[in-house]
């Protein structure tokens, strides 16, 4: 029953059949202790202790990577019973502990749905559970039909079913979030659904980064519009690269895409780590400074120069849900694919 991910551009993530998981049980337990409730709710501790479809999706992906079936079941139970209540089978994007009902806005967040589906696929691979596969396939089919949109003529990911279609201020083009291109998921989705060309969506994501590289900042804003062969910040959103966008280099590395795409992001970082960037000037606005974020910068540095990541970033720091999540994803990638960045011999 094991299904290996289709490879897009070279050897990338698969779940090893026999090797120990790249995320250690101790790391995973500390993540569970810090951010996951007994009900399986993955809690955004820096954001009023709410949960999102995104946090649940990350939780599922990480539980599969950590090969913790028990934790996976817990998180899935909460995800399905509390968030996957939309008429179209996707997840409501936000769950608030203090609101009644807990879900007050039933819009979805497409990256959350992508992560949930991807987590289910990883779990199906690992544990041979066909229902996980079936549920993922249904979500992918729905996303492929309802949440892909033409942006400047290219197939792109609509961030949610409501509110992103664009208007006169965007010349009728949809508002996009470049960090919703979770590149490693796309070839996997493509293999599931012969009707939808998810690989073309990958190409759009890369085209988006190419266009951004010609802008003053060199990197895309968190919310953008593609039109007339160019890219620009979306109206009514801050014209900045920030906490959304820092995931892009992580996703590029995990998917094994051309390291050249990392260069503009690397250029905007420094030895101190990542920054919020003002898109108009390209200037740094404020540091994005937790160990989890710094590891992304260090990872890019290693890819470019071969310099191993600093010792202190190799240990999970549960400073915040978001930083810890990205750190675990980065550690998983380095241990699996780039042991040299951890000062280790490459695995045979």
């Amino acid at each position: 029953m094991k299904r290996l991910a289709t490879l897009l551009l070279g050897g990338i993530m698969t779940v090893p059949a026999c090797a120990a998981p790249a995320i250690t049980p101790e790391e995973w337990q500390s993540y569970l202790d810090a951010f996951v409730s007994p009900e399986g709710r993955v809690i955004d501790t820096a954001n009023g202790n709410i949960s999102h479809s995104e946090s649940q999706g990350y939780g599922l992906v990480l539980a599969a990577l950590a090969e913790d079936r028990s934790g996976f079941e817990r998180i899935l139970n909460f995800t399905k019973t509390e968030l996957m209540i939309r008429d179209d089978g996707l997840a409501a994007w936000r769950w608030e502990p203090d609101a009644d009902p807990h879900v007050t806005d039933t819009n979805n967040a497409t990256d959350g749905d992508m992560l949930i589906a991807y987590g289910l696929l990883l779990a199906s691979d690992l544990w041979g559970e066909t229902t996980f596969f079936t549920e993922a396939a249904a979500m992918v089919a729905t996303m492929g039909r309802n949440l892909l949109v033409s942006a400047d003529g290219l197939p792109a990911i609509l961030p949610g079913t409501e509110g992103f279609a664009g208007n006169d201020a965007t010349a009728g083009q949809p508002i996009l979030n470049p960090s919703y291109w979770i590149f490693e998921t796309l070839p996997r989705f493509d293999s599931l659904d012969p009707v939808i060309d998810w690989n073309a969506v990958t190409e759009t994501g890369l085209e988006l980064l190419r266009r951004a590289s010609t802008t003053p900042a060199g990197i895309p804003g968190d919310w953008v519009v593609m039109a007339g062969g160019a890219i620009g910040p979306a109206p009514d959103f801050p014209a900045e690269f920030g906490y959304n966008g820092i995931r892009i280099p992580l996703y590029l590395m995990r998917a094994g895409l051309d390291p050249a795409f990392l260069e503009p992001f690397r250029a905007k970082a420094s030895s101190a780590g990542l920054f919020k960037i003002d898109l108009a000037t390209g200037n740094a606005m404020e540091p994005i400074d937790e160990p989890g974020y710094r590891l992304i910068q260090a990872g890019m540095e290693c890819v470019a120069t071969g310099q191993p990541v600093p010792e202190e970033l190799r240990t999970l720091q549960t400073t915040s849900y978001y930083a810890a999540t990205l750190q675990l994803l980065m550690l998983d990638h380095l241990r699996r694919q780039r042991p040299n960045c951890l000062g280790l011999e490459a695995q045979s």
Partner: peptide
Amino acid sequence: MPVQTEIGITLPDPI
């Protein structure tokens, strides 16, 4: 059977 969401999708096993 929620057939509509599964059209054109490869199923690993019939459920």
